[in-house]
Computed example of a mutant assay.
Amino acid sequence: MMELMQFSLCFMAFNCFALAKFNHFREVFKKKLTDKQRHSFLTTGWITILLSLVLSVLSEGGYGALLFCGYMALSVLMLMILYSFTVSWVKHISILNLSILLLSCFSVMIF
C-alpha cells in the first residue's frame, strides 16, 4: 500500500502543476484561474512531490529514488494522455486519486 500512496502523491503533484497553468485550468473548470488558486496549486504540487520522494526513499532506501523516477514518468505519461484526449475526465480522476490516496494513507497507518 505504501507504493500506491507514493504513486498517488506523485500523480496528485503533477496534476496540481498542470492545473496551475491557465490553459489547463480553463479547459477543466471552464473559468479563469486566479493568482491565489495558482499559488495554491503550485504549493500543493511541490509539497506532495517532495513528500512522495521522502516516503519513497525512507521506505525503500536507495532503490526508492529509482522507484520515484518511475512514479514520476508514469504520472506524467498518464496526465499527458488524460489532458490530450479526455479533459472532461480530469475532475473525476482527481477525485478518484484523492480517495485512493486517503484510503492508502489509512491503510498504512492501521497496518
Rank of each mutant, 00 (worst) to 15 (best):
V54Y: 11
L58E: 13
G64P: 10
F22K: 09
L79T: 04
F68D: 12
F7N: 01
Y63I: 14
G61A: 12
D35H: 11
C69I: 15
W89L: 13
I81C: 03
T43S: 14
C10P: 02
F11W: 11
L77W: 00
L19F: 12
Y83R: 06
R38A: 01
V76P: 05
T43Q: 12
W46F: 10
S59I: 04
H39Y: 13
M5I: 12
E27L: 09
K31F: 10
F41P: 01
F85Q: 06
S52D: 03
D35Q: 11
L79I: 02
K36H: 03
L42W: 08
Q37E: 09
V54R: 01
S56F: 05
F29Y: 15
L67T: 10
K31T: 12
L67F: 09
L58S: 13
M5S: 15
M12T: 15
M12S: 05
W89A: 09
K31M: 14
S88P: 04
L66K: 02
F11Y: 15
F11E: 04
Q6V: 11
K21F: 09
T43V: 14
Q37Y: 02
S40F: 09
K21E: 09
Y83N: 07
K30Q: 12
L33P: 03
Q6D: 09
N15R: 09
I81F: 03
L53M: 05
F17W: 02
L33N: 06
